[in-house]
């Protein structure tokens, strides 16, 4: 597919177009899968970003702290229009969900008298935990290629999840160890 060849010749998008595309994806992206939406919008439909640039931005977004998709729109905004482009993307992306999540909270409160609500809420939370389980399965599969990574996964989960140690000190200790292990492997 010569999609990536075409993208280089196109003029950079207007800030308003960046904002609107991110706004649309942000407000419509019920229940995740946002990376797929962004790929569809930026790479396939608008051809603003080519495939390789998208993949490398995604890797950086996943490696760094922060919501992966927010980091991803920042990288693409910067690449297309510099700092103001990054700002247009991130604000466009978050403004819709900000109001939507509060609105949903109010709907939830309005239904508080409904006897089945706690059970339904639990069920939604359990289904959402299934989403996390799948992320863990994919991540563990990748970690299997290098056994010390599996040990890092297990130790992190045990200290924070089972022993309930505070997350931040655990990350500050384990992250450098894990990076050092990968460095020696490479």
């Amino acid at each position: 597919m010569p999609v990536s060849d075409l993208s280089h010749s196109l003029p950079p998008p207007r800030l308003r177009s960046l904002f609107l595309l991110c706004f649309k994806i942000g407000i419509l992206s019920f229940g995740g899968g946002l990376t797929g939406w962004l790929y569809q919008g930026f790479v396939l439909q608008q051809r603003w970003i080519d495939e390789d640039d998208f993949a490398s931005s995604l890797a950086i977004s996943q490696m760094l702290p922060g919501a992966n998709v927010v980091n991803l729109v920042i990288c693409m905004g910067e690449q297309l229009r510099g700092p103001i482009g990054a700002l247009s993307c991130v604000v466009g992306f978050l403004v819709g969900p900000f109001f939507a999540v509060i609105a949903l909270c109010q709907v939830f409160d309005a239904l508080a008298g409904f006897a089945l609500l706690p059970a339904i809420s639990d069920g939604v939370a359990f289904a959402a935990m299934g989403l996390l389980v799948v992320m863990c399965i994919h991540g563990l599969r990748r970690a299997m290629r290098f056994p010390p990574s599996v040990a890092i996964v297990v130790v992190t989960a045990f200290l924070v999840g089972v022993l309930e140690m505070p997350l931040i000190p655990v990350v500050l200790v384990l992250a450098p160890i894990s990076v050092a292990l990968s460095w020696r492997r490479a």
Partner: peptide, 13 residues
């Protein structure tokens, strides 16, 4: 590659 397993461990937690 080093940060990825820490992230997975935290999701399990």
């Amino acid at each position: 590659e080093g940060l990825a397993p820490v992230g997975i461990g935290l999701i399990i937690a």
